[in-house]
Design a protein around this nucleic acid. Sequence first.
RNA 1: GACCCCAUCGUCUAGAGGCCUAGGACACCUGGUUUUCAUCCAGGCAACACGAGUUCGAAUCUCGUUGGGGUCACCA
Length: 490
Amino acid sequence: MIKNNIRVRFAPSPTGFLHVGGARTALFNWLFARHSGGTFILRIEDTDRERSKPEYEEAILRDMRWLGLDWDEGPEAGGEKGPYFQTQRGSLYKKELEKLIFTGNAYPCFCSQEELAADREAQIAVGKIYRYSGKCAQLTADEAEEKSRKGELSAIRLRVKEGFTTFTDIVRGQVTVNHEEIDDLILVRRDGEPTYNFVAVVDDALMEISHVIRGDDHLPNTPKQILVYNALGFKIPQFAHIPLILGPDRSPLSKRHGASSVSEFKRQGYLPETMVNYLALLGWSFDGKTEIFSQEELIQKFSLERVVKSAAAFDYEKLQWLNGHYLRAMDDEKMFQLCRDYLLENKIISQKYVQSEDIYLRRVVALVRGNLKLISQIDEQLTYFLNDVYAYDPQALIKFKTAENISVFERVIKVLNETDSLAPIPLEERFRKEAVSMERKFSELVHPMRLAITGRTNSPNLFEIMEVIGKDRCLDRLQRFLNSIQKTKG
RNA sequence: GACCCCAUCGUCUAGAGGCCUAGGACACCUGGUUUUCAUCCAGGCAACACGAGUUCGAAUCUCGUUGGGGUCACCA
């Protein structure tokens, strides 16, 4: 496919799992790229060597793939503008830094951390806002050289002149910041490591990023970065800052609200199509009416102009409803595979059982799937299919374990014994007739039977269950229930 | 605290001066379908944060107040 000049990127730090906020940022970038025929780039911002871990990096790639967010350039994909790991781009930063020093847009700062800290405290004590004094900005080239010759270490700062920076954000509109609000920011630390606001700009510029789509939290960084773009002589990209995702209590979404990382949602039994659809709806809408979007429809309909400005609270209930929707729409084979994988992963059933009972399991899943909103709920739907001994619902037990039900169960067992085929429709017909002849309501027959055969008051179609479980097991279960009534009531 | 951003039902949102007695979805409530649950169907509850302007007319424009969020690092 021929790509145009639209290039966007998602740039996670491998310091943790992929958070839903990050996932949505990635999604919006991806949708924008796919919609416009542009290029989607994945860049790993791993310069925080203490917190970055390879396992997080792997997890992020895995979760991105699970969501279906494929990247055109980046780790494992390669690309012309690499490397795509910041830790491998040191020489590029060095080269750009030299440009800045040569043009006088950056200068060495010899102030020690202690000095700066003291300065800060002094200013705060007087009730002023802390700003770097600009002391080292005054140093002449000779003075600076003299200091370095004496072995004094320096950080490198950007020289910020007076004035205002204005930019137009695609979702926020025009934003203006007075340079008084901006310090002479550090570009390279005393230890030689470049800082985020410097490397992000260099990377975005060198990778020819046309649209920077990222979280709201970067909005205050943007004027600083524009200053760096200008100092470097690079073209400024378009910016689009998307609002943050909050928890149900409107504080930033975190683990204490429940699941907050993509892998956690996956583990709980959510589908990737659910996550993509829901995340797209969180902060974006098409017409305010349509709720269900396939990935193709999202690509076709997405636009940054329709991204909302305000932060959205994550609604776990709506997510679950959506998942139920996608689960219902799924074909039996895929549903079976997902359930089987879930049951195997959580060691609820063994590989051996899956192999020997393949047909049985398929029929069971097809039966109970109607009640699932999460794949993980398959577990508790399965109890009476996997075990012949199970607890009875206590309330229902009181209701149905009655002396008068003795004759009911005797009849039911007799009828079932005389029945050869358990095909659900004729079987139901047979019991309907039986209810009439017993002068009982059909439900008065079905409910006690359900309790005996499943242990519960609700289940899928009882007669389909009976067919799947088989005549012998059903008779055993009915007989066992009858015996227990006779023992206490007889 | 300073600076920046935001503000429509409980939640996600539609709404870009008259189409709004504010629409849709989740949740909730009622009824229907079903052997039960789930589904499905029908209906209901429920919001323009507040106060001043501008205007013939404001959810929509302006200002202020309040509330929420973000950022203020030699973290990313």
